[in-house]
C-alpha cells in the first residue's frame, strides 16, 4: 500500500496537523514504507482468531458513585494558554 500526496494531506487533515508543503513527499515515502512493513500481516491466517484488544483477561472494575473531586480550577487553569472568567478561550466556534 503506497500513499500519495493527497492521501497524506487527507490523513493530516483528519489528525489536524499542519503539514509543510515541502515535507509532504517525505511523509508519503516514510508512511508508505511503514505500511509496506505492516503488509506482512496480510499473509497471516486469522480466519478463526478472535481480535485481542487487551493483554489481560480482566473485566472492567466499577467505581462507587461518589463525588471525590473538588474544585481545582485555579490550579488547572494556571497552565492554560488562554482563559477568561474561568472559560478556556478558542477562536470562534461556528455552528
Amino acid at each position: 500500500m503506497s500513499l500519495d500526496r493527497s492521501d497524506v494531506e487527507k490523513i493530516a487533515h483528519l489528525a489536524r496537523m499542519e503539514m509543510d508543503e515541502s515535507q509532504i513527499d517525505a511523509y508519503a515515502k516514510d508512511l508508505s514504507n511503514i505500511l509496506g512493513l505492516v503488509e506482512a500481516l496480510e499473509a497471516a491466517d486469522t480466519d478463526h482468531v478472535e481480535p485481542m484488544a487487551h493483554p489481560l483477561h480482566m473485566a472492567q472494575r466499577l467505581r462507587p458513585d461518589r463525588v471525590s473531586e473538588g474544585d481545582h480550577r485555579e490550579e488547572n487553569q494556571a497552565i492554560a494558554p488562554n482563559v477568561e472568567a474561568g472559560l478556556y478561550l478558542v477562536p470562534k466556534v461556528i455552528e
Binding site: 461518589r66 463525588v67 471525590s68 473531586e69 474544585d71 480550577r73 488547572n76 474561568g86 472559560l87
Partner: peptide, 28 residues
Amino acid sequence: TQSKIFSGASIAYGAEPNAQACIVDLGF
C-alpha cells in the same frame, strides 16, 4: 448519578464555569 461517568467530579447543574471539570474530564 452524583458523579461523572468516568471521574469523581460532581454533575450538579449550575456550577461556576469549569469548577466541576477535574483533570480526568479535562483530558490532562
